[in-house]
Simulated assay, not measured.
Amino acid sequence: MVSISDYGDFYKMAKRNIMLAILGFNAQKHFCDTRERMVSNVLSSLHKLVAVDPHSPLNFREVYTTELFGLSLIQNLGEDVCSVYVEEFGREISKEEIFHVLVHEILSCVVEPDWRDYFPYLSWLPNKSFETIVSSTEFRRDAVMNALIKRQKERIARGEARISYIDFLLEAKNSTQLTDHQLMLLLAESIAAAVDTVLEWLYREIREVCGGKAVTEEDLPRLPYLDAVLHETLRLHSPVPVLPTRFVHDDTTLAGYDVPAGTQVMINVFGCHMDEEAWESPGEWSPERFLGEGFKLADRYKTLAFGAGRRTCAGSQQAVSIACVAIARFVQELQWTLREGDGDKEDTMQYTALKLHPLHVHLKPRGS
């Protein structure tokens, strides 16, 4: 709801709430230990998998996504939920199924095409298959979210208050006049909302700055190459290839084009990042473009991975912190090699960009 709401009173209230509860500066400080524990858990899992079978490639996405989802649950619900009973399903569902319903199914539904969007003059015609998918997805999401919210309300009623998004929203519910449905949607959105030479350069920088100490968020300002690696990755492999649709309320002129009221505008982030007028050799991955004399601070804003302006992604600060610390710790402790042939795999163009097939990596603990 925060990402797609019109810029008005509700949007301002919703964004203010999520910033105060989990994404603002003070809230981020509170969850710093939780984020570091998440990275440590990922590393622990990777080390265990390597110890069991050091020669088999690992599905990195599978390990990382599990821990990242756990972090999201802790921030939003106050606990890493392992399972929950869903009355509408008549059974208890696991954390894996919770993830599937709240994240995978929702993102798949978002990119499900509705041909009426391309032929507005035929919008009066029904599209039963699309409507069935949307209805089924919403039903399953609502059922799981209501079960999770009920569980947390019972926890709060027992006097077990925690610092989390749901605790914040329930406490502020009367003053903000949020309906139960709006509260559920805000929580659901927040839960759903993650070359050898380069690695050695990065490892060298980390060693020079941190020595043998594990990298923390406090070290990030002193790691410019790490910052460049992140921004170049966001440019070449933007997590959101197309920004959410924006509705034009008033006639306006944009870059010389007349845009009438009622128009829906989508920004092609992938196209912007591949623009040869803005980037030299845009198809090449080169972190150095964000370093040195040719780099200007404004160049960072040419990468629209988190949007820009008043509608910039509320979670950008957390995303950058998690990604940078995770990358640094992974490089610090492990040597990485892609499974042969995986380097050429293509991205998918869903609501968020993923590899069509997950990358598999060979890992070797440093010093072994």
Rank of each mutant, 00 (worst) to 15 (best):
V134Y: 03
D114R: 08
R61M: 09
R329P: 02
V110M: 11
I156P: 09
L58R: 09
L46P: 04
A298E: 15
A27L: 09
N41C: 04
S83N: 11
E218D: 10
A319C: 05
A328I: 00
R140W: 03
L363A: 08
Q177I: 02
Y301L: 02
L185G: 00
K173S: 08
S129H: 10
K355R: 15
W336I: 01
D33T: 06
G367C: 04
G212S: 06
Y225N: 05
S129Y: 07
Y257D: 09
D167C: 01
R339K: 14
L223T: 02
S83Y: 05
V111P: 02
S44Q: 07
K345Y: 12
A308P: 02
Q318P: 00
T312W: 05
K128W: 15
T233Y: 13
E138D: 15
Q75W: 01
L102W: 07
L185I: 05
V229Q: 12
P120T: 06
F295A: 09
P120L: 08
Y11V: 00
L71G: 02
L243W: 11
N26L: 03
E232W: 08
L199H: 13
V195I: 03
E280M: 03
N59M: 01
H30L: 08
R204D: 15
V144T: 15
D250P: 00
I98F: 05
V81N: 09
L243D: 04
H55Q: 11
Y301N: 12
F306G: 06
Q177L: 14
S316W: 10
V229C: 13
R246E: 09
L354G: 07
A157V: 12
A194W: 04
V2A: 05
K48T: 08
R151D: 11
R162E: 12
G341I: 02
Y203F: 12
G307R: 12
F69V: 00
A261P: 10
Q75H: 03
L71F: 13
D342K: 05
R155P: 02
I322E: 13
H273F: 07
S286K: 15
C82L: 10
L359S: 05
D344C: 10
D227T: 08
N26S: 11
V265T: 13
R116Q: 13
H237I: 04
T337H: 11
E79R: 07
L169K: 05
W279V: 04
F295Q: 05
V42M: 14
A278N: 14
L334R: 10
V265W: 14
D227G: 06
G283W: 12
M19H: 10
S45F: 01
A261L: 06
A214H: 00
E346M: 12
L230M: 13
W279E: 10
C324A: 10
T252R: 01
M274C: 07
I327G: 00
E333W: 04
V361E: 01
